[in-house]
Simulated assay, not measured.
Amino acid sequence: MEHGMLIPPVYSPIPPAIHPRHKLIDQQTAAWARTFDIGSPELREKLVGQEIGTFAARILPEGDEEVISLLADFVLWLFGVDDGHCEEGELGTDPKELVPELSRLLRIAQNPEAAMLTGDSLAAGLRDLRRRMEQHATPAQLARWVDALREYFLSVVWEASHRSKNTVPDLNDYALMRLYDGATSVVMPLLEMGYGYELQPHERDATSVRAAAEMAYFIITWDNDLFSYHKESRGQQYYLNVLRVLEHHHGLEPAEALEVAVAQRDRVMCLFLRLRDHLSASGSPQLRQYLESLSCFIRAAQDWGISSHRYTTPEDPAELPTTFRDTPTDDSEEPLDIPAIAWWWDAVPEKRVPAVPQGGLPVNGDTALGVPHLPVTDHVTAAGHDSRSFA
């Protein structure tokens, strides 16, 4: 795929929000990274300059400040693992060595007192995160955090397998694993901790609520693929991205792949909004807060994605948007032709529709891949000029 791709404004109906002490939180996270020597000196200074504390402050705009700092430190730690061990380290192309290394870290998350990896900076940082988490989490939330970390580690190994062979997964496998390798599910327990509640299992584990969470993961990671494409494609390492998947397996030109990916995330965004409103209408106060936090997480990733030096790469500027669209490019209520996620459309009772036929052929002007089914006038909002602007 060609370099220098212009990423269009994405549909963002969720208003921005940020904790008032975001600058202090960002400074504290920088200090934490240096205290625990997260990553190599070069990687650490890159991470410190990427405003990860501000990202966390957007996810929990009215949350407990200690939990926001904990979330910020955890996200930076995750980047230390992903950038250092996987994308840029030797283990990133050696799944058989990556598995035991990640398993040792997982053991530290489960049992920080275990006498393992005593000289490892990532393990030391993880011990600190786990012990601080105990001050805010219930035993069940801690257990779910460890389970989500296991899911993330498993997906990282899957990606390393493709990297080791320089292969590209198909769209269905990519969509499934992207739910986990974006490290979105590991944030979920902290959404509850940030507001001091525990969502009861009968609500959190309900199929429809799980679908809403997965839709948020999908939107966040598809957006991330758009915003990070310039950074990843310019590097020397293997990279995995929905645009590359669509071009490789579906024979699309770069502009076509971009159009399809945007339409896919827009269709899921429309579905998420319908399901969120449906669940909020009858859910408990805790569930309503959880759904609101999912919305904040989506918007936080968007605002951070178009502004952080991680993706704008000032030394080699990316062509990222500075605005957001008011309208989706695709608001079809038909499921995407991706079996791993097509069941989401059944989670909104009043909006059930037949599945899109297999094969990716046009259906009434639409396509199974999610190309816009009707031309939509592009309405954008300028950053800094209305309620949807980046703050």
Rank of each mutant, 00 (worst) to 15 (best):
L291Q: 05
T323A: 15
E90P: 07
D120L: 11
T322G: 13
T207Y: 03
N111L: 09
N224A: 03
P16Q: 07
Q237I: 03
T381M: 11
E97Q: 14
D170C: 14
E253P: 02
L279G: 02
P61C: 10
I38W: 03
G49I: 08
S280P: 00
A109Q: 06
A114G: 11
A318P: 07
F153I: 01
M133R: 01
F297G: 02
T323K: 06
A57P: 05
A368P: 04
L102H: 04
D378M: 11
D147M: 12
V209A: 02
R34Y: 02
R178L: 07
K46A: 06
A342W: 00
E232L: 04
A57T: 11
D147Q: 11
E65D: 07
A301Q: 11
I7N: 01
L6P: 00
R388A: 11
D82Y: 01
R325N: 06
D181M: 08
L199G: 04
P189L: 07
E315K: 12
R130Y: 03
R150Y: 07
A30M: 09
D37A: 13
R210V: 14
G92N: 09
F36W: 12
G365D: 06
A114C: 13
G80K: 03
G196V: 04
E247Y: 06
D266I: 11
P95Q: 11
P362E: 04
V81A: 05
M116N: 08
L149R: 02
R131K: 10
I25F: 09
K46W: 01
G49L: 09
H22A: 14
A342V: 02
Y290S: 01
E247I: 12
H162Q: 06
E292G: 08
D37E: 09
P169K: 09
A17R: 04
L176T: 10
G305L: 01
I25V: 15
R210T: 13
Q286G: 00
P328M: 04
V67R: 00
P20K: 05
E2A: 08
M116E: 15
D128N: 13
Q27L: 11
L142H: 04
L190H: 01
S185N: 10
Q50I: 00
A57G: 15
N172E: 14
V146I: 14
L179W: 02
G39E: 06
E134A: 15
E51Y: 04
H373G: 15
D120G: 12
E232A: 04
L320M: 12
P314A: 12
S103R: 12
D303T: 13
L294V: 01
E256D: 14
R234T: 13
V67P: 00
R21N: 07
D120M: 13
M5L: 14
R352N: 02
L246G: 06
S307L: 08
Y239F: 15
M133Y: 06
L271F: 03
L279S: 04
A160R: 03
D326I: 10
V156S: 10
I220C: 12
E214Y: 08
S40G: 13
P335H: 01
V67G: 00
V262W: 01
E319S: 14
G80R: 02
L240D: 01
Q236S: 15
H19N: 09
S208L: 05
L6N: 10
E256A: 15
P9C: 01
E159S: 12
P254N: 10
D120V: 14
R276E: 14
D316E: 12
V209W: 00
V260W: 01
L129M: 08
Q110C: 10
D37C: 10
G360C: 06
D330P: 03
L294H: 02
Y11Q: 05
R21T: 13
V356F: 11
